[in-house]
């Protein structure tokens, strides 16, 4: 069984991103970039399926400019077998990413496609579901457990009230939640080996996809800042403030 994993290049989660003063865009000058944490979990899950003998090959795909090859290499160092970059100028919208991924799915015919549930920059939480609709595949989003059973996959999902389990016919889509697994660290020898693993580059035209724009970013601004309040001396003063000043209890 082939497994396709989508990995996205994003700002490292430790970086506190700010809007530029003129509001034209976010300031991403010299910030540290990394693989989206949810995508790292996706790679780990795929590699574990391979180690368990369930998956035969793990392919990591990223959509973006040349820089995203760095994140594909990270995925290869974590155990993916080969990489695919779909070359675009900068970031594209989730709908277009989904169309491009569908093109890759048609080429590679994976039985399972694993994506992050959301990327920590756009916070859109859309791409996997859109790919599901376009490819006519079922989806197990926000997964905390994935169990392959013959030609179905059982996915336990983190939902508002607790956990839900669904059975999906393969080929299927899974999007990862935080508790699916704990990703490993890439070892130095594996990082070296990753440099030699194959990485193919396609253009959207190769995949028969037109890059369209449906949304434009008009401006960005910082959120309303909260002023730090006061430190209270003790529990009595806290209760007094909550009752008489804030009037919330």
């Amino acid at each position: 069984m082939k497994v396709l994993v989508a990995v996205k290049r994003v700002v490292d989660y430790n970086v506190k991103v700010r809007a530029k003063a003129d509001g034209s865009d976010v300031d991403l000058n010299n910030v540290k970039m990394a693989i989206n944490p949810f995508c790292e979990i996706a790679v780990e899950e795929a590699v574990r399926l391979k180690e368990a003998g369930t998956a035969t090959e793990v392919i990591a795909v990223s959509v973006g400019d040349k820089a995203c090859q760095e994140q594909i290499r990270t995925a290869l160092a974590l155990g993916a077998d080969r990489g695919i970059q779909v070359e675009t100028d900068g970031a594209v919208e989730p709908l277009v990413v989904a169309k491009l991924l569908k093109g890759v799915v048609e080429k590679e015919q994976p039985q399972l496609v694993i994506l992050g549930k959301q990327s920590i920059d756009g916070d859109n939480n859309q791409t996997g579901q859109m790919l599901g609709a376009l490819a006519g595949m079922p989806q197990g989003t926000f997964a905390s457990e994935v169990v392959i059973d013959g030609d179905t996959v059982n996915v336990t999902r983190e939902v508002d009230g607790g956990l839900q389990t669904v059975a999906l016919k393969l080929p299927a889509i899974v999007t990862t939640d935080l508790r699916l697994n704990e990703p490993r660290y890439a070892s130095l020898p594996n990082i070296m080996k990753a440099k030699k693993k194959p990485l193919d580059v396609f253009t959207p035209a190769d995949l028969g996809v037109e890059v369209t724009t449906h949304l434009t970013q008009v401006s960005v601004e910082p959120p309303a800042e909260r002023q730090a309040g006061i430190k209270v001396e003790d529990v009595d003063q806290l209760l007094d403030k909550l009752k008489n000043e804030a009037k919330v209890i």
């Binding site: 919208e93 989904a98 859109n124 579901q129």
Partner: peptide, 23 residues
């Protein structure tokens, strides 16, 4: 934007070939 809608609405958007504007 509940867990249900997050699960379903992007599929709707893709079926209609439009973007989803999230949250």
């Amino acid at each position: 934007a509940t867990a249900n809608a997050k699960n379903t609405m992007p599929r709707v958007a893709a079926l209609l070939d439009v973007a989803q504007i999230s949250e």
